[in-house]
Nucleic acid binder design. Structure first.
Lengths: 156, 156
DNA sequence: TATAAAATGTAGCCTAGGCAACAAAATTGA
DNA sequence: TCAATTTTGTTGCCTAGGCTACATTTTATA
């Protein structure tokens, strides 16, 4: 026994509202861009942290801190080098370029604001720490400013 | 003239503090996991929205709303089908499975809380909309709860 | 009803970021 | 010093999510 099937799936021409899809697409475009820069931002920030904490940044330390293999770290370092954020020589520790330092400082500040904002909202340190790591890359300057404003009023 | 170069780059055994790298790695692990589910969540949410708004979800509508090519949409639909979130037949419109519907509802709720939270914080609709899209995937249940709590006190 | 247009499917290519396995260099310590 | 260990580099493979170009099916319309 065979089912009779309608040929058409779009029976009537649907009313097309003033194009919502464009503005929606813009948001997803932003998210995709954020993902592009995310790795670079995390790496320069981590390198800066390691240099501050332990005097130098090694491939093995990055691998441990990100929880990935050293092969992955190596591949990413090559890319960051091409992009002018990191300098590296074989078997030596890693350094940031001036541009890398600038980016790291900017990211650290943003990370810090997000983290303290989550704390001020009443979250425990662990949760604030975990969420800040993901959220920081998707917070626009305006939103960051709103976070700062909130922090001023709700002193921790 | 040749530069004399130190053989060793790690001069002294650095003091190793109680392993910070493990907890840090945990945060990045969470972020990587979030990225894994991000696309699936965006797609089921969009499919549910389109069905609600226009009666059906077509590949071409998804492509327009995400701002990507229809080939990209197709590839992702195949994956979501394998994962049991979407049902599709050649040249027909898309449907969610029960599990897909459940996930869509959950995501929509979360998206909504994040969006209204940003509004309550004083941001304009456009910025709130853009940032919510990125932030929603990186907000833990605890943080979402804190957002809800804030919303209750600061009724929009 | 033909034919044009739109939607969908498919193939092949690209980059990013994962991995394991192996190779080579550097550091440590007996 | 030199042998063992650690660190770093390299290769090749995988998946996800982009794209263009081309093939096919469906839908609209002359």
């Amino acid at each position: 026994m065979t089912m009779v099937e309608r040929k058409s799936t779009r029976q009537t021409p649907l009313p097309i509202p003033p194009d919502l899809s464009i503005s929606r697409a813009q948001a997803f475009e932003y998210v995709r861009q954020a993902h592009q820069s995310e790795t670079a931002e995390d790496y320069v920030e981590m390198i800066a942290d390691l240099i501050a904490e332990r005097g130098e940044a090694r491939v093995v330390d990055l691998a441990a801190n990100f929880g990935v293999s050293h092969a992955t770290v190596n591949k990413i370092i090559v890319r960051l080098n091409k992009e002018g954020l990191v300098t590296n020589r074989p078997y030596r520790s890693l350094f940031l370029t001036v541009e890398g330092e600038r980016l790291a400082a900017e990211c650290k500040e943003r990370h810090d604001v997000v983290y303290r904002f989550l704390l001020a909202l009443g979250l425990d340190e662990h949760t604030a720490s975990l969420d800040a790591e993901g959220v920081e890359h998707h917070v626009s300057p305006k939103t960051l400013q709103a976070f700062r404003k909130f922090l001023k009023k709700n002193a921790p």
